[in-house]
Amino acid sequence: MKPRHWWISGCLALTALFALSLSSCSTIERTIVETPFIEGANFVGNKACYECHTNYTREFPSSAHARVHVGDAALKGQTGCESCHGPGSRHIAAGGGKGRFIVNPGRDSTACLTCHVQTHAELRLPHHHPVLENKMNCVQCHDPHGSDIMKASGTGLAMARLNDSCAECHREQARPRVYEHAAMREGCTACHVPHGSMNSKMLTERDVNLCIKCHAQTQGSVVGAGQIYFGIVDHTDKITRGGCWSAGCHPAVHGSNISPNLHY
């Protein structure tokens, strides 16, 4: 780690310690996770939710979100539901009902981004999925209740299939072709950042590093310093013109129906 990283970490830690020094035990109520606020409602625990919402909650203990809870000593890790939906006592007292004294984050990413601060920052990078613009929501790609968070909510079997979430919208890119790009079998995230990136098309990198970190150069005694061979082909001059796909040589990055070398 470079020295400046320690600088930044140190400053952040000092800030946090300063904040901690302001604390007073007598002023603390209960929540550490910033749960949605529902006036007059108290936490009741997962079991109370299970009474009615069986279809969502039966599998919930296997969910990544079951590891989250509000800091209520009496409920010891059993408040995963209310971490995102808010305290449930008034909802139950009212006999339930959609949106009655309960928060449904499925339509609003605010509840998710309260905890996922880094994801929030990624969604503000220049090229991003339009979640903050309310044109998408988190559950289109993630199942917050199931055992596989990388699966779209309410689809298919319990475990995700390769590229299924992305293909729901990006069918053009995910469709089969005669000559595939092997990276498609590693998943879309081999090349794309799913939430947001500073790079166009939400690429992880925007230069040749994106490709040659996997398509390694071929080695040999005739390869001089500075020369780059992929397979038998000397690419030394080619990569001076730009990235492998952006330079116009291999633009069919998702596969081709005519060119095994992904020229078209």
Binding site: K2, E205, V208, G226
Partner: peptide
Amino acid sequence: FQDSRTASADNGNPSATPF
């Protein structure tokens, strides 16, 4: 704050630099 570096085996080619 994010500090990241992607580097590939570029065999010293000056047109390929770390991202």
